[in-house]
């Protein structure tokens, strides 16, 4: 079969997917880059956002886009509590202690969602579900286009915040040298809280936007966590721009790989790339951290 005519569609799908991967990975790389915490529960907060969107749809009959005004603050609030109760106490602890905490949090969140919502898959239709935008021979879901555009906008907005604002400068200072930041009068604890809330809060923004063309199950978060880790390693841990680029690379690899392999084994390509990077370029594409 000639696959070439299908390539533009695969590339478009890859870019749309990549943008969402990018924002999820940017959140992960921000928490790692600033707090030096490896958050294995990252994707589970996306699942939390999706379930909140689902509750908004079933209880309040809210369109996913409307539930954004509830989901974003609730997920951010969950992040703030998580930082205060679980992350701050182990912020100076050895890495393996921190990993036990975030891994444990991931298990607790997943099993709590399993207990509350069962393992059934749920969809959250929107007025935009099924709406297709056609560009030549490429068909794009309107909801996916919105999610991708919003993801890119948020990434760029966060980049601007980090680079060009007083708050962003203080966050970067806390990231680059904790003690020096403390001695300069930076409230490092507050910067950690803010960075954690931004990193996770962005998931509260993404969840309602991807809800119209996704399903939710208790384990949906771990697949996002895994992909986000691959993206973050690819783009260099803690590197903001790297996470952005890595997101698009993995999105494209999955979509084009799916085209070539028929979709059944395309994840093998992603993981193969991940392993090759770990073996031959563990510092990632861009190397070093530049936050």
């Amino acid at each position: 079969m000639d696959l070439l005519p299908l390539l533009p569609q695969a590339l478009a799908d890859g870019l749309l997917l990549g943008a969402v991967y990018a924002i999820v990975a940017v959140g992960l790389t921000l928490t790692f880059g600033v707090l030096r915490i490896v958050n294995f529960a990252h994707g589970d907060f996306l699942a939390l956002g999706l379930y909140l969107t689902y509750l908004g749809a079933t209880w309040l009959h809210l369109d996913p886009y409307l539930s954004l005004v509830l989901v974003l603050p609730l997920v951010t609030l969950a992040a703030a509590f998580t930082y205060r109760l679980l992350i701050a106490p182990v912020i100076l602890a050895p890495e393996h202690n921190q990993i036990v905490v975030t891994l444990g949090l991931s298990l607790i969140l997943q099993n709590a969602m399993l207990a509350i919502f069962t393992a059934d898959l749920h969809t959250m239709p929107s007025v935009l579900s099924g709406q297709i935008v056609r560009i030549g021979n490429v068909f794009i879901q309107a909801a996916a286009l919105i999610a991708s555009a919003a993801s890119i906008a948020v990434c760029l907005g966060l980049y601007w915040l980090l680079r060009s604002t007083e708050l962003g400068r203080q966050i970067r200072a806390a990231a680059q040298d904790r003690d020096a930041a403390l001695m300069s009068g930076v409230n490092v604890d507050r910067m950690y809280l803010i960075a954690f809330c931004i990193g996770i809060g962005s998931l509260g923004l993404v969840a309602p936007l991807i809800a119209p063309f996704n399903y939710v199950s208790p384990s949906v978060g771990s697949s996002f966590t895994l992909t986000a880790f691959i993206v973050v390693v690819l783009g260099s841990m803690g590197n903001f721009v790297g996470a952005l680029i890595g997101g698009f690379i993995i999105g494209l690899v999955e979509a084009v790989g799916g085209l070539l392999t028929g979709g059944s084994i395309n994840f093998i390509i992603t993981y193969a790339i991940f392993i090759l990077f770990l073996l031959f370029r563990p510092e990632g594409l861009l190397g070093g951290r530049r936050l």
Binding site: R169, R172, A173, D177, D179, A180, A181, V186
Partner: peptide, 21 residues
């Protein structure tokens, strides 16, 4: 601090601004 401990990836000017946080 001992060893200067500047923020290496920031400009000199940004380092100064951090000083007045």
């Amino acid at each position: 601090p001992e060893g200067r401990r500047l923020f290496p990836d920031m400009t000199v000017f940004e380092n100064l601004l951090i000083g007045s946080s």
